[in-house]
Design a protein around this nucleic acid. Structure first.
Length: 191
DNA sequence: AAGAAGATCAAT
DNA sequence: TTGATCTTCTTG
């Protein structure tokens, strides 16, 4: 079980170090292979930049809280609140892709897809596969409940690249992937 | 009251 | 490349 102090650091460190950790939700679990960092200060792509409700959420919750929201009216996106202790170090980690480990038949049933690579290879896909929706918004992920994290069991090679699907601050290399994983959403551009 | 924007996905 | 679909925030 990953403890709260893991999330009492800045979003870039948390995003990088979550690669290779396990996310579990009920009977389902997978290795985190892709994340993105969003910073409360100085990042125009972060919801705190244009949503007062998000700034309120950040003030009212402890690090390790789930921040789940509906995007494009269709897809739930799963984030973790991180607070490094002071404005510029606060933010969110978006979990974007998993390598499925357990509960694979449940994932297949919820996704209506069979291939392992189609189950959790995107932020909207993994919430559907794990059954995460807005009802998980605000829950504590460090409380030993049904959803949480397990530490790494190997030493991953992590690659950083540009974030996906945003227009503002699109050039920042704040997306992190497990190198050469076939389970990421979009393969990083090879230089 | 109405409109725009938005961290996506699957089918064409 | 496009359509689906909804919440939040801003403007009138």
């Amino acid at each position: 079980m990953i403890e709260r102090d893991f999330f009492q650091r800045d979003p870039l460190t948390c995003s990088r170090e979550l690669i290779g950790c396990e996310l579990f939700a009920g009977e389902c679990a997978g290795v985190i292979v892709e994340t993105e960092a969003y910073c409360a200060v100085g990042d125009e792509a972060c919801h705190t930049f244009f949503r007062s409700g998000t700034r309120d959420f950040m003030a009212l919750h402890a690090p390790g809280a789930a921040y789940v929201y509906l995007n494009y009216g269709l897809h739930w996106l799963f984030n973790i609140l991180v607070k490094g202790g002071g404005g510029a170090k606060d933010g969110f980690v978006l979990v974007r892709a998993l390598e499925p480990l357990r509960g694979i038949e449940s994932m297949r049933a919820r996704r209506q897809r069979h291939a392992l690579r189609d189950l959790c290879s995107g932020p909207g896909k993994l919430t559907q596969a794990l059954g995460i929706t807005g009802k998980e918004h605000g829950i504590d992920l460090c409380a030993g409940g049904g959803i949480g994290f397990q530490p790494r069991r190997f030493n991953p090679e992590v690659e950083s690249c540009q974030r996906i699907g945003i227009v503002k601050a699109a050039d920042l290399p704040w997306r992190f992937v497990l190198k050469d994983s076939p389970f990421v959403s979009v393969r990083p551009r090879v230089e």
